[in-house]
Simulated scan of single mutants.
Amino acid sequence: MKTNPSAAPADTSAPATVNHEDFHVGKFYEAINQYASEQRQKIKQEILDYKQKELEKATDQVLQEAYEMIQKEMANMTASIAREMAKKELEGRQALLKRRKAITEEVFNNAAKKLLDYANGPEYPEYLKKCALKMKPLFTVGDTVIYLREEDKKYEDLLEPLFGRCIFRIDRKIRLGGFWAESNTQGIVADETFDSLLENQRKWFAENTHMEIV
Rank of each mutant, 00 (worst) to 15 (best):
K88G: 05
I32G: 01
K42T: 09
K72R: 12
G26S: 13
K101I: 06
N76M: 10
A82W: 00
L90S: 13
E73K: 13
M69W: 09
E54G: 02
L48W: 05
A119E: 02
D60K: 07
E106H: 00
K113M: 11
I103M: 04
K101P: 01
G92W: 00
Y29I: 09
N33Y: 10
E105M: 13
H24N: 11
M69N: 15
Y35T: 10
E84S: 15
T59N: 11
Q45E: 12
G121L: 01
A79T: 00
H24S: 12
Y124M: 02
E65S: 03
H24P: 00
L55Y: 13
K88A: 15
Q71N: 15
V62H: 11
Q64C: 11
Q41G: 15
D49R: 04
I70F: 03
G92I: 00
N33D: 15
N109T: 14
M69C: 12
D60W: 04
D117P: 01
A79M: 02
K113A: 13
A75V: 07
Q71T: 09
K44T: 04
V25W: 07
D22C: 03
E46L: 11
Q61V: 01
L90I: 03
T78H: 06
Y118V: 04
A112C: 00
E84N: 12
T78R: 13
K87E: 14
M74G: 01
Y50F: 06
E38S: 12
L90D: 10
E54I: 05
P122S: 10
K51F: 04
P125N: 01
M77W: 05
A75H: 08
E73I: 06
L116H: 10
K42F: 07
N76R: 07
A119N: 02
K57N: 09
K101F: 14
E46Y: 03
V107A: 12
L63P: 03
A95E: 04
A66F: 09
H24E: 14
Q39N: 08
Q39T: 12
E105F: 09
I81H: 02
D22H: 06
N33L: 13
K113Q: 14
Q34I: 04
I103G: 02
I32T: 05
F23L: 15
N76T: 08
A119D: 02
N33Q: 14
E89H: 09
A31Q: 13
P125I: 00
G121V: 03
E105Y: 06
L116T: 03
Q34D: 14
R40F: 07
E68R: 03
S80I: 02
K72L: 12
E105R: 11
S37R: 05
L115E: 10
I43N: 05
G92T: 04
N110T: 10
Y35W: 05
V107E: 10
K27Q: 08
E105N: 15
A75R: 12
E38K: 08
I32W: 02
K101R: 15
K57R: 08
A36C: 06
N110W: 02
Y118Q: 11
D117I: 01
Q41P: 00
E30D: 14
E91S: 12
T59S: 08
M85R: 14
K87Q: 14
E91Y: 04
Q94G: 08
A86M: 13
E38T: 06
Q34V: 04
M77T: 11
L116Q: 11
Q94E: 15
Y124H: 03
M85K: 14
